[in-house]
């Protein structure tokens, strides 16, 4: 059975699903995949000097999946032969849980690392997902980037970070 390469889900993220989706180590092999990198973003128990007790994520789900597909298309433009899988968790997450998981497969390690880094930078720029931080004495919505998928400057910035 195939695993969805792009998803938002209330279930805990499963590294094995992403590996399967990009065709990571398989018996018989995929002759053009020489490297898979994976990025996991975890809930950190501190932000800007305040202790964080949990996060809550929400998303505009149908658009989020389309944005993940768009990011994968951008990745293929930059690094031909690469494949991406991207899952983002929604709902309440405790400290240490994975909020986002990205797997990038490519012919060589440099492309796989760069594709993975590019993808997480683009998620932060344009994925319609929001997190609310809960502290011991309150909570606040985090507002980061103004999402504009056509902003070339943002895309170039993600590419620069990926190749730094």
């Amino acid at each position: 059975m195939g695993v969805a390469p792009f998803a938002v889900t209330h279930e805990p993220l499963r590294v094995d699903d992403l590996m399967l989706a990009v065709g990571g180590p398989v018996e018989g092999g995929r002759p053009l995949v020489g490297a898979v990198t994976m990025f996991l973003g975890l809930v950190r128990g501190e932000n800007l000097g305040r202790r964080v007790v949990r996060l809550e994520y929400e998303s505009y789900e149908p658009l989020a999946v389309k944005v993940f597909e768009r990011i994968a298309a951008e990745v293929r433009e930059h690094w031909s032969g690469s494949r991406l899988a991207l899952h983002h968790r929604l709902g309440a997450l405790g400290v240490g849980e994975a909020s986002v998981a990205i797997a990038a497969a490519a012919p060589h390690r440099a492309e796989a690392f760069a594709a993975c880094r590019y993808a997480i930078e683009r998620v932060k720029q344009i994925a319609p997902i929001w997190k609310k931080e809960f502290f011991e004495d309150g909570h606040t919505w985090i507002e980061g980037a103004l999402a504009d998928p056509d902003d070339r400057g943002a895309r170039e910035d993600a590419y620069r970070r990926a190749c730094a």
């Binding site: 973003g41 149908p62 989020a64 932060k124 994925a127 319609p128 997190k131 919505w141 103004l146 999402a147």
Partner: peptide, 30 residues
């Protein structure tokens, strides 16, 4: 930011009957 029928769009977009219009504050995924 704005999305119409689950596609990013612009504020000058002309709307049609039945459209779903989403208004999105700055995002913070990851």
């Amino acid at each position: 930011s704005i999305a119409v029928n689950a596609e990013y769009s612009k504020m000058n977009r002309r709307l049609a009957d039945g459209d779903e219009v989403a208004f999105l504050p700055p995002v913070s995924g990851g």
